[in-house]
């Protein structure tokens, strides 16, 4: 079972009447770097959230190493969108990164010296050690992203979900993330990244999922990342509506 990390089966998510994800079937092999690509509102973030049980799907489910999510929490790392938290929260960089260890600690247990050391180690990997005691409100966007990545590294997971880590970051951070992705791949980890920049997909990733409410295609980049598939993914929704209904709006 271990050569497939995630199996998504018949996953549909709908907000009220409108489906955001429609009957997604997806298998993610272990040890790959996969980009999830699609236009705005294609359901990329929703896909991750539904897989992680943050949103209740209408149908279907995701299995991790053949088991439900709850049984494998500790093997899964998550990097939410940077803008999803309040960066004015009164805490330090080291403290935020240490939060990544909470999952393994469980309820009630406090992080100790060992957890702090691991947090410093992770900060080192994203080149942020000198900021350990800095207040998080003083960070730039790229630095915030690197802190989030360090926090995920501390989780020491086998499978990572990253929601738009490249969004609005500086060149230095972009390089740091790419280096990190390569390291994770070398260690045999599986990484799923919601990605916006089509130009860098082939450079940074080896697998790709093309999504626009429905799953257009997924697989190794050289097979799937074709012009035809991209056209299908990015055609305007009005266009598809027109085709689906066979009449002019």
């Amino acid at each position: 079972m271990d050569n497939i990390s995630v199996k998504v089966h018949d996953l549909t998510v709908a907000y009220n009447k409108k489906p955001v994800l429609w009957d997604i079937d997806l298998e993610i092999p272990s040890g790959i770097l996969m980009a999830v690509v699609g236009p705005n509102g294609a359901g990329k973030t929703t896909l991750i959230k539904a897989m992680l049980n943050l949103i209740k799907p209408l149908t279907g489910r995701a299995l991790f190493w053949g088991e439900p999510y709850e049984n494998n929490r500790k093997r899964i790392g998550y990097v939410p969108q940077r803008g999803s938290v309040d960066w004015d929260f009164p805490t330090s960089v080291l403290d935020v990164v240490t939060m990544g260890t909470y999952g393994k600690l469980g309820w009630f247990k406090r992080p100790g010296k060992k957890e702090k050391e691991r947090a410093v180690e992770a900060l080192n990997k994203v080149d942020m050690v000198s900021y350990a005691n800095r207040q998080i409100s003083q960070l730039s966007g790229g630095q915030q992203q690197r802190v989030f990545l360090a926090r995920a590294l501390v989780q020491d997971a086998d499978l990572y979900f990253m929601d738009e880590p490249f969004q609005g970051v500086d060149a230095k951070t972009e390089k740091a993330i790419v280096k990190l992705l390569e390291e994770l791949k070398k260690m045999g980890k599986t990484v799923l990244v919601v990605h916006h920049d089509l130009q860098t997909v082939t450079e940074y990733f080896d697998w790709v999922t093309l999504l626009n409410t429905v799953l257009i295609d997924y697989g190794p980049i050289h097979e799937v990342f074709t012009e035809e598939n991209l056209k299908k993914t990015y055609r305007s929704t009005i266009d598809s509506f027109y085709k689906n209904n066979g009449k002019v709006i």
Binding site: L54, Y78, P80, S84, F89, V96, L105
Partner: peptide
């Protein structure tokens, strides 16, 4: 004292808290 860690985590990042099982 019992829930300091959990209060801090859920207040700062609710989604991560949920993913980590809190």
């Amino acid at each position: 004292f019992l829930f300091y860690k959990e209060l801090k985590l859920t207040t700062f990042d609710e989604k991560l808290a949920a993913v980590l099982g809190f």
